[in-house]
Design a protein around this nucleic acid. Structure first.
Lengths: 146, 146
DNA sequence: TCGCAAATGAGAACGATTATCATTCGCACT
DNA sequence: AGTGCGAATGATAATCGTTCTCATTTGCGA
């Protein structure tokens, strides 16, 4: 609840931009956001924060374990609040909608695969790209990238 | 074996640059290559091909189903010959070495996860980022990105 | 309240990739 | 084999996401 403390605990001094970014994520407005999206959302609220700062803050939050970074297709990083519970993603290619899922078996088998080959897992990402069934989907935002 | 035919079948006219790129992948010299790597390897053989063309050709080959594109961490796309057999990747964060693996169970469970949520899978990517155990690894190429 | 290191913001710089556009090439048709 | 034309190429400019630079501002302990 107390954001300044979250930052303190993460070893970051509580500055205005950091508080704004953190609040935005905690507001639940959007669970997954790119740097650009965070930047624009803050602008639209009158909370001006430089784009460079947004990038810096997001990276710091990632390192501090407050946020998780995802590299979905399309070249841009997307961040989400770290709720401690790992999960994978299904991304709708039409509307960009992201849904989360978790499958313990898949997780376990990944561990195996790596271990069997003498690797020490540092990180892993499983993303499913699909078309979602929502009736209002294909008409929405449509990220016509690439 | 006959490359011009491969291209024909893919609906691409067989030009010099396309043949060179295709040969490079079929030579087995390196299974996973980025556009930059393809470009440099061709240069080093005296087979001059413009960088822009390399990018174009790689994209066309991907769309034609000759190559598969992977978006690993680090921002650059990596391509590999499509052998028809889908597989996932373990990427060594130290030396960039890529190893492939396949787990039918994981695949099946992904299908489930998507279907259960009303998604139609278009594509999916599972990448494990790890440190490999090779003794000569951490000392090698080292992509000190980010 | 002061002072200073740390953080910020504007804009330059960067790396990967794509677009532009004049020149060249593959190939179907004589 | 020779021609013609549309597609393909290559040099370069442009774009996109992101990081860097550096002068200015801010948080916070003394």
């Amino acid at each position: 609840m107390n954001q300044p403390e979250h930052l303190k605990n993460a070893g970051l001094k509580s500055t205005l931009p950091r508080l704004k970014v953190l609040s935005l994520f905690e507001s639940g407005q959007a669970r997954h956001m790119s740097a650009e999206e965070v930047y624009k959302l803050l602008l639209s609220t009158g909370d001006d924060v430089g784009l460079a700062t947004v990038y810096r803050v997001l990276t710091q939050f990632e390192q501090a374990g407050l946020l998780v970074r995802h590299n979905f297709e399309g070249g841009k990083s997307v961040f989400e609040l770290d709720q401690g519970t790992h999960h994978d993603h299904i991304v709708c290619l039409q509307c960009g909608h992201v849904e989360e899922f978790f499958d313990a078996d898949i997780e376990a088998r990944q561990e195996n695969a790596a271990a069997e080959r003498g690797f020490t897992i540092r990180d892993h990402s499983l993303s499913i790209y699909a078309d979602c069934a929502k009736t209002d989907c294909p008409n929405k935002t449509r990220s016509e990238n690439r």
